[in-house]
Nucleic acid binder design. Structure first.
Lengths: 230, 230, 230, 230
DNA sequence: GATGAATGAGTATTCATTCAT
DNA sequence: CATGAATGAATACTCATTCAT
């Protein structure tokens, strides 16, 4: 057993080493691509940051383009998971609507303000012309799905009579716009870190406006206003 | 007089030639930078697109960085002028509020959806790390000033009792968010041209939501809803 | 007369202006060529140092090569005149031989150590391969003629029985070698300015050695040794 | 053992290949720098002459300046070794003084007249202003040390009563001057190859003059004169 | 599979030279 | 004639990619 164990252990360690290296390269690649842009990013720099030799990068990914796509895909999936988790906090069973929207909005903005999310969006914007398929990966696989998920939840709330809208997708887009618009301006495209209090204020204002527009009657709006003060 | 005219005409033609070339270079530079990104953009390509020799580019602008900054600055100024003109359509003397907001929002979104505006924002996002001062040029000199101007007009409407808000800047940010959020998603970062009808729908929805939240009483909201149908 | 004077004066002033500019360019060219080397020297820099526009340089000299040759020729002539003046201090009528040699040697070394002479030799060495004809200008027109002139004078001294040599040219070469060899080493190729006292010492030692070898009898050698002490 | 041998052999071949390439580049660089001057020399040309790709040059030396310094240093060391070997032929045990000086002088001049030595001096003169540290490498590390070594040997001869001088360094400088002065003029800065007979004549004349000046009595001088005839 | 060395294609920048004024 | 502007050719240096070990 020890012999077999040793061998399989060695093999496992080797596989683990390979996988670790693969992830190290992907992380380094994303970091360098985001920091320098695709053209400016050197494979040298990526290899150095990953702690491997340049040729190893090519052994794993073949060429620079593939590396970009894989790195973006990996980080897009991470972002998608985080955002969906945030959306799922919104249920029709849950308690008071304003508080729940505040909670969801806050977590969505935290995803949005994550350093790596800013990097992902900047990278996407930067390389749109040269790599249009990145748009499908990021916008299609992530952003749209998050909006759809949010729309689903809003639709269930509307069905339950707790929201007054017939176009749940538009409502979801507008809720996002109310959250993201102010933040994009104030954080100067992710350059400045917003203090948590300001973030909560933005969320509160968004929820307040959203409820005034979409709550079945005026009562909720006032409650939301109170939630914002808290 | 004709002699003097001839001379000054010749001199003017010379100066005109220089100025024309300068503008040709700036336009070509902006186009190529936006299409390829700073690092990927070749000065060769810029010169070719401008119809001048590469060295002429260097005679005028010294180096690639300066060329980028000048091109961005020039186009930022153009965008600023257009946006301010749009905002100025919002007066406290004007007619029905919903119709006016619809008009302003539509023109603002037209500015926003201009191909060169998308290019400017993408370029800014792409080169933020390498040229942080571009942020001051674009965000500080343009976006913020437009929001401030919009806030000014909203504040006057609030003073006139036609809007119900105490934080005009926040209201302006939210109005922008309601306009821009849906558009950014639907046009896939400017990749897809939105049909005019869809654009008007987005504006109508934004105005409707905005008025429900900020109109002094429910009457306006209903009017806005009707405006949206029209 | 005043009219003609004015006109010719104007013409003269114009011509003077042209000539002045020509000399300014030649001086600037020599300075820049010597400082930077032919390839590295920019016509821009020369024009700037001469205080004229770049195109003016081309109006006067046609191209960079011509400019180099003219500048070198001009300064070679200057150096030739200085060196010949030094050699002519050596006469067969003059007083004590050692003192005269000391005087000639000192003035020759002063020519040799002139900043512009170092520059001329460095420039010649640098551009030998690309412009072999400079060698004829500098070596043939200057250095050789100085050595010949010195040989002439030494020959007359030998005829007068005051020197003991049959090959005056060789004697002249050796005298030069005794002067120049130590100086070239000590001044580090003209980088370091030799103090006047050290210069005189070198001359004294050269004269002393020269006389010991070439004086008809030992008496002169001793006198030269005394001259060196003084 | 054969396996190990194979491996080390392969490794050695690899290392040898690198070293060979390094030397090929250094030689090519020196040749091209000497032929064209630093500014004019293209790294392309150097790489081509070395038979490697341009990037390989940069992999080995980083930039053009470093390449120049390394090439000069390498060839300066070579020249130093040759010159010191020549000086060491001068011993106080050896036979007749005139013959020994003739031998040393001849070998020193052969070093001096080596094509690469001329190239080294020309290159030094050419690039003095831009790379003043080359002076330390060539003058300080080579020329001065050779003169010092020669002075050492002359001093031992003086101690042994075979030379009459109290300043061995000056004597060494003058001996060099007597050798080099005539040669520099006759070979036209290394442009013309001196025939061996003329070289020997120059050495003979130098030794003759030197001994007349520094031999303890007249006897040696006459012997040297005879040596020159031989 | 991981690495160091080698390479060829590409790019920003400079500069001698010309032309219109 | 003196000039400012324009240009084409040349060059140092970089980098993605491949190959031998």
């Amino acid at each position: 057993m020890s012999g077999a164990g040793t061998r399989s252990g060695a093999a496992a360690a080797g596989a683990r080493g390979r996988i670790d290296k693969r992830w190290a390269i992907l992380d380094a690649a994303f970091a360098v691509f985001a920091r320098e842009g695709y053209a400016q990013a050197g494979v040298d720099a990526i290899a150095a940051e990953a702690g491997v030799a340049k040729a190893t990068v090519y052994n794993h990914f073949g060429d620079k383009e593939t590396l970009l796509r894989q790195a973006v895909t990996a980080h897009a999936e991470r972002a998608l998971a985080q955002n969906l988790a945030a959306v799922e906090r919104l249920t029709d069973r849950g308690g008071e609507l304003g508080a729940m929207l505040q909670d969801v909005g806050y977590h969505l903005l935290q995803c949005y303000c994550d350093e790596r999310s800013w990097a992902l969006r900047r990278l996407l914007a930067a390389e749109l012309h040269q790599f249009p398929d990145l748009l499908d990966i990021v916008q299609g696989q992530v952003a749209d799905r998050v909006t759809e998920a949010l729309a689903d939840r809003l639709a269930r709330l509307a069905l339950a009579g707790r929201l007054n809208t017939t176009d749940a997708l538009l409502a979801a887009e507008q809720f996002s716009g109310l959250l993201v618009g102010p933040v994009e301006k104030r954080s100067r495209l992710g350059t400045r870190q917003l203090p948590d209090a300001e973030l909560r204020d933005v969320v509160g204002a968004a929820v307040c406006t959203f409820l005034r527009a979409f709550a079945p009657d005026g009562a909720h709006a006032r409650q939301a206003g109170q939630a914002r003060q808290a």
